[in-house]
Design a protein around this nucleic acid. Structure first.
Length: 353
DNA sequence: TCTGGGGTCCTAGGACCC
DNA sequence: TCTGGGGTCCTAGGACCC
């Protein structure tokens, strides 16, 4: 039975959206699996910090920092190597729990999701959010923050504001005064480039967007972005939870050690493994090189037939590499045009009667 | 000061067709 | 033969996200 403070029951028959986000995901998995890592500043990463525990964040350790930099600001930092398989397993466990609380779950990444709770019996949104939080903690051992709101933006704003281990519901009444006051910087989906373009036209808040002519907004930010911004300004932004979309690509990217060349076999071997594990073949191979002088080289080739064969990928990738010269700092290979591996036989010509 | 790696979607322009 | 209009597909690169 809805309490007096919960307006969703009357305001929105469909119920609110939930945004569920694991706190410091990689670090949380490591701390869960090794009690010795709990309560101390630690981080998962190799050359750079991929994810820092909240204890380490208090010292100023952030994702993306080089390990040297991180140790400089936090000498007691414990560093552990990345364990991709463990994170993938934790992600699977997380989504198994979330699936029980929602008719539809839209993954944002391996550690976060939007939940459509329409068909979920609940008393109040707070109680539902708390149930999700408890279930994830009990069944996966991972700390999550849950935000709820009328749209994805509101749910995400809610969770972002109370991390870690937080729970916040933005009720429709609160949204009405909160929304126009939002700064452009706070908008999910608006990055540096768009923010700067808007700033040059003195647009700094959602309320500022609302008074700009649509044509002008389109000139500033482009068609799709303008549409999205206008929707945010009127409160008509995305409130639809879409189930998982099919994968479009796999990619690998590696720094190339000084004095060595691009290890094409290593990169394509990894891609072939992932294609195989995912049950995919691909039809397009792309190569991207970053040189020490900041220039880039890109190449792309379409395969005659879908493949997941490491040698075929390697020879294609090699044909896209330019002849030597400037030192390569980073090399990446991406495969796209994914098809289900078992669908390949369908390409056989139907010559029958 | 853009550290590193893995993704998605959008856009602009060219090729090609009617 | 030239001009105009419209549509689709593909590619390269940009913007954004975690």
């Amino acid at each position: 039975m809805p309490s007096g403070g919960d307006q969703f029951a009357r305001a929105l028959p469909g119920g609110p959206l939930l945004h569920v986000d694991v706190d410091a995901f990689f670090a949380a998995v490591e701390q869960r699996d090794d009690p010795g890592l709990r309560g101390i500043p630690m981080a998962a990463g190799d050359v750079v910090i991929a994810c820092a525990s909240y204890e380490a964040r208090e010292w100023g350790v952030q994702a993306g920092m080089s390990v040297g930099e991180a140790v400089a600001v936090c000498p007691r930092l414990r560093l552990v190597p990345l364990r991709s398989d463990a994170y993938a397993a934790a992600s699977t466990a997380l989504f198994a729990v979330l699936g029980r609380f929602a008719a539809r779950v839209e993954p944002g990444s391996m550690e976060e999701a939007f939940l459509d709770t329409r068909a979920t019996p609940w008393a109040t949104v707070d109680q539902l959010a708390a149930s999700v939080q408890r279930a994830v903690a009990h069944e996966t051992g991972l700390p999550v923050t849950v935000g709820a709101g009328r749209t994805k933006l509101m749910a995400k704003l809610a969770s972002r504001s109370v991390k870690p281990r937080g729970l916040r519901v933005i009720q429709p009444a609160e949204e009405r005064y909160l929304r126009p006051a939002l700064l452009i910087d706070e908008l999910w989906g608006v990055g540096d480039v768009t923010r700067e373009r808007l700033r040059q036209h003195n647009i700094r808040t959602v309320a500022d967007i609302a008074v700009v002519h649509p044509d002008h907004l389109r000139d500033i930010a482009g068609t799709q972005m303008a549409r999205r911004l206008a929707a945010i300004a009127t409160g008509a932004d995305d409130a639809t939870v879409r189930p998982e979309r099919p994968r479009r690509s796999y990619s690998v990217q590696r720094a190339v050690p000084r004095g060595s060349g691009v290890d094409v076999d290593l990169l394509t071997g990894e891609l072939a493994g992932r294609l195989h594990d995912g049950g995919f073949t691909c039809t397009v191979v792309s190569v991207a090189l970053k040189y020490a002088n900041r220039l880039e080289h890109r190449g792309r080739a379409r395969l005659l037939e879908p493949t997941a064969d490491a040698r075929r990928l390697a020879s294609t990738a090699r044909s896209l590499l330019p002849a030597g010269g400037v030192r390569v700092e980073k090399a990446g290979i991406t495969v796209t045009g994914l098809q289900r591996a078992d669908a390949a036989v369908q390409l056989t010509l139907d010559t029958g009667g």
